[in-house]
């Protein structure tokens, strides 16, 4: 359902943002290869727990998100200090949005599509996970249903990712004006795109943007849970996930 109709004129800016998106299959294969390599190094008997495996997937997905960001238009013009501040601020929202849009495309309410391309029954996850994780997964599914109902498409997601990344509310940015300018441009591009592509749905832009606070709330809950699990020693250490968690909360 998220395949968007051919718009009469695609705003060039949206095309630019879409062009920054990585090839999903390439990302998937990279992550699968990495997890397989890790597992072969661990030996057959040492089976990671479901949660530990999810952490490894999330960690590798985060690597791909950083790779996407650093190759993005506008972002590569920033100094590394500002790049780090922006990513520290929105890494968990980008991770959650990546997961949720995958479920929107998957279109199944009873199962979850993982970044590795594997499909897992929701009932299995809910039977394995304890209450907080279950509620997180459920909330993610509910947001996916709402976005699917909005017929969110890939181009809109590309814009939303930029809106999350270029957040002018991040403190102590060296080039605050630049970030504000990008936020404004992307808002304009998304508005123009939704009005020209979905003329029958004039409110689509505001309906999409209103989902961002929900996304932030969900990602904050996910961070809290990750923090709790990390303190209980459940999260594999020395990875990007934990560094970003600490950086955001420092």
């Amino acid at each position: 359902p998220s395949a968007s109709p051919q718009p009469p004129s695609l705003p060039p800016q949206v095309l630019e943002l879409l062009r920054c998106d990585p090839d999903e299959l390439v990302v998937q294969n990279k992550i699968v290869a990495h997890l397989q390599q890790e597992q072969s190094g661990r030996g057959r008997l040492d089976k990671p727990s479901t949660f530990s495996l999810m952490c490894r997937m999330a960690d590798q997905t985060l690597f791909s998100i950083v790779e996407w960001a650093r190759s993005c238009i506008f972002f590569k013009e920033l100094r590394v200090g500002d790049q780090m501040k922006l990513l520290h601020n929105c890494w968990s929202e980008l991770l959650v949005l990546d997961h949720i849009f995958r479920q929107v495309q998957h279109g199944q309410e009873d199962s979850i599509l993982l970044v590795t391309g594997q499909e897992v029954e929701l009932s299995f996850i809910l039977s394995q996970a304890e209450a907080t994780l279950s509620s997180l997964v459920q909330r993610g599914q509910e947001l996916a249903v709402r976005l699917r109902a909005l017929q969110v498409d890939r181009r809109e997601i590309a814009c939303l990712k930029f809106l999350l990344l270029f957040n002018p509310n991040v403190k102590l940015l060296e080039d605050q004006a630049f970030v504000e300018g990008v936020q404004e441009q992307v808002n304009g591009a998304l508005l123009e795109y939704t009005l020209s592509t979905y003329p029958q749905f004039q409110e689509k832009f505001s309906q999409l943007v209103v989902r961002l606070p929900e996304l932030r709330s969900l990602s904050t809950q996910a961070e809290d849970y990750l923090c709790y699990m990390h303190l209980s020693g459940e999260v594999p250490c020395n990875n990007l996930l934990i560094e970003m968690l600490h950086a955001k909360r420092a």
């Binding site: 650093r70 590394v80 780090m84 520290h88 990007l240 560094e243 950086a247």
Partner: peptide, 18 residues
């Protein structure tokens, strides 16, 4: 004690396609 360089910083500063 020098602070361990951030993994994120290393990734952002790594040459493209490294």
């Amino acid at each position: 004690e020098p602070e361990e360089p951030s993994l994120l910083k290393k990734l952002l500063l790594a040459p493209a396609n490294s």
